[in-house]
Design a protein around this nucleic acid. Structure first.
Length: 343
DNA sequence: AAGTCTATCAACCGCTATTAC
DNA sequence: AGTAATAGCGGTTGATAGACT
């Protein structure tokens, strides 16, 4: 046991490698291989420790290293693998040809991790943060939804509201075996939903995530989820749970993307109640009189053109960011419909 | 134009696991 | 079996480029 003494020796160079050093290392390894990193630097004429040489070779000089931006497929693979393996960068790298553990680790820390945080997803557990959208309640069992499969089904049932990108991401984020069914189910349906993705992205390209204003104190309607429509027909689940309503102005109707809240019953805890009851609890709730609507349209986004999610091309960070976020939620909350404790 | 801030990523540090003796 | 050397891994740092003011 114990640390390698080679790096502690005086006189050995540290810091960035020069092109001459790189060439010496490459030439030596091409001719002799890299069997013994301890003796390699001396034999190659390098004033470096073996550890530094190994790192330089494995992380930069190796001929099979793929440089450049990560593709969407690679990014998805990293997220998926990380959800299972955690910070086992070398194991993850082994499944991504041409990518090094160091590169993946850097990419995770500087890109993916931040993006997941912004999207309200815990980068460690890969679960949605519970103080955000009630996606979590749809993905975990509850007294009202006895199986997680059912919850995923509910999620998939709102494919007019949630596009395949969300489903794809969700499929990538189930880390444990207890969600394996959901993973398979989601991934299957992601493929099916991709059939609609082009249309969805055209018709929904203007959507962006809910406005997040964490500091507003408003009345709480935690766990408000529609149960049944008034005509007792199976109802499409609406992603309005865990939001707080305040001074909610309604938009014009006559649009298929609107949801008429009057048609639904809601529950909180054990009680079922309708929209009027819900409204009566918010004294400052305002409507335009007849239509209590969630607007699903008229939201601007920096992304103007649809892009197929399976594109293998790499895309710019800002563009990728805009795409991912804008496609996450396909409905708008009015400016005065606030979400608490976000981010 | 200059100063400051931020993001990125190559490289290092320190630890554990494995191997050699 | 015990010890030291070596390889490899994951966390962290720091130099640098680009963005911003």
């Amino acid at each position: 046991m114990g640390r390698s003494p080679c790096c502690d020796k005086n006189g050995l160079k540290k810091g960035p490698w020069t092109t001459e050093e790189d060439q010496k290392l490459v030439d030596y390894i091409r001719e002799h291989g890299y069997g013994n990193w301890r003796t390699l630097p001396k034999n190659a004429g390098l004033e470096r420790c073996g550890k530094s040489c190994r790192l330089r070779w494995t992380n930069y000089l190796r001929p099979d290293i793929k440089r450049g931006r990560f593709s969407l497929e690679e990014e998805e693979a990293i997220i998926q693998l990380h959800s299972v393996l955690g910070n086992k960068w070398s194991t993850i790298a082994a499944r991504l040809p041409g990518r090094t553990d160091n590169e993946i680790k850097n990419y995770w820390n500087t890109h993916i991790r931040k993006r997941l945080l912004r999207m309200g997803i815990d980068p460690v557990t890969h679960n949605p943060r519970l103080d955000l959208l009630d996606l979590s309640s749809m993905l975990t069992p509850s007294p009202y939804n006895s199986s997680s499969q059912m919850n995923i089904s509910r999620l998939l049932g709102v494919q007019t509201l949630v596009n395949p990108e969300l489903l794809r991401l969700a499929a990538s984020l189930f880390p444990s075996s207890q969600h394996r069914e959901n993973q398979n189910f989601l991934q299957k349906n992601v493929q099916e939903n991709n059939l609609h993705s082009t249309h969805d992205q055209v018709t929904n390209s203007q959507f962006m995530p809910p406005l997040m204003q964490p500091d507003h104190q408003v009345k709480d309607f935690q766990n408000c989820v529609p149960l049944f429509s008034n005509d007792a027909q199976p109802m499409e689940p609406q992603l309005i749970s865990n939001f707080q309503l305040n001074n909610w102005q309604c938009n014009e109707m006559a649009n298929s993307n609107y949801v008429d809240l009057q048609n639904y019953s809601y529950y909180r805890s054990d009680q079922s109640f309708n929209i009027d009851h819900l409204m009566s609890e918010t004294s400052d709730f305002q409507s335009n009189g007849s239509n209590n609507m969630i607007s699903l349209t008229n939201v601007s986004t920096p992304i103007s053109s649809p892009r197929h999610i399976n594109s293998t091309s790499t895309i710019g960070e800002e563009e990728r960011e805009g795409y991912s976020l804008s496609s996450m939620m396909k409905f708008e909350f009015p400016d005065n419909l606030y979400v608490n404790s976000l981010m």
